[in-house]
């Protein structure tokens, strides 16, 4: 038996405080990319009681994703955005999730992210990350942007940090270790970066802007 919406709210309010929980419930966050960063960010935000999430990803789940991405073996072949929506529903049934199977481009970014004052960049390719960050900072100056860069390799998890680059642009990662260097991509370390991003989002919603 699934608890009611009120039961969920009260359980979270007992952990976070009622005033803060109201802010989380009223928040809308877009997650661009539903891979190692995005799937973990979305789950953390849904578990915290964020009211509305938009998941945007064009890709399908592959067996190589399962070391770090929040999917199940029987979901291989499905679109990530849609599979993540299903998984989020099992975790947080009252979180309003929109799944968009689309490739984000400079042309569609503003329309896709309209109505979402907080955006997480959770792509894997460096060029795509730069494209999204530039497009948002240039065209959506009111948007809070939380991006990830540098979580590959088995280097210490402690190297992963959150930096505040400008008033509305936060960057999480070690800023250095590129997956293209061939040093591997370890689920736990990717999760550390995703947790930095998700936690930064919660702090922004709470009105805490320092890092």
């Amino acid at each position: 038996m699934i608890p009611s919406k009120e039961d969920f709210f009260n359980a979270l309010a007992a952990k976070h405080g009622s005033e803060l929980q109201k802010k989380f419930a009223a928040a809308s966050v877009a997650v661009c990319g539903a891979g190692g960063l995005g799937s973990n960010i979305a789950i953390a935000l849904a578990r915290a009681g964020v009211g509305r999430l938009k998941i945007i990803d064009f890709d399908k789940i592959e067996v190589t994703n399962l070391n770090r991405q929040q999917y199940f073996a029987d979901q291989i072949g499905l679109f990530k955005a849609q599979a993540l929506k299903e998984n989020l529903f099992k975790i947080a049934p009252y979180c309003e999730v929109t799944a968009e199977v689309t490739k984000i481009t400079e042309e569609n970014v503003t329309s896709l992210l309209k109505g979402f004052p907080i955006v997480c960049e959770a792509f894997d390719k460096a060029e795509a990350k730069a494209m999204l960050v530039n497009a948002i900072l240039e065209n959506m100056p009111e948007t809070y942007l939380v991006a990830g860069s540098g979580m590959a390799s088995l280097n210490p998890a402690n190297l992963i940090k959150t930096r505040k680059i400008t008033d509305r642009f936060y960057l999480c990662g070690d800023f250095t270790n590129d997956v293209d260097a061939g040093t591997g991509l370890f689920g736990a370390r990717v999760l550390v970066c995703a947790a930095h991003q998700a936690h930064t989002v919660l702090r922004i919603i709470a009105g805490e802007f320092e890092v």
Partner: peptide, 10 residues
């Protein structure tokens, strides 16, 4: 000046 240079992985 701040140059943010992204690296791959996610």
């Amino acid at each position: 000046l701040e140059v943010v240079s992204f690296v791959g992985g996610g």
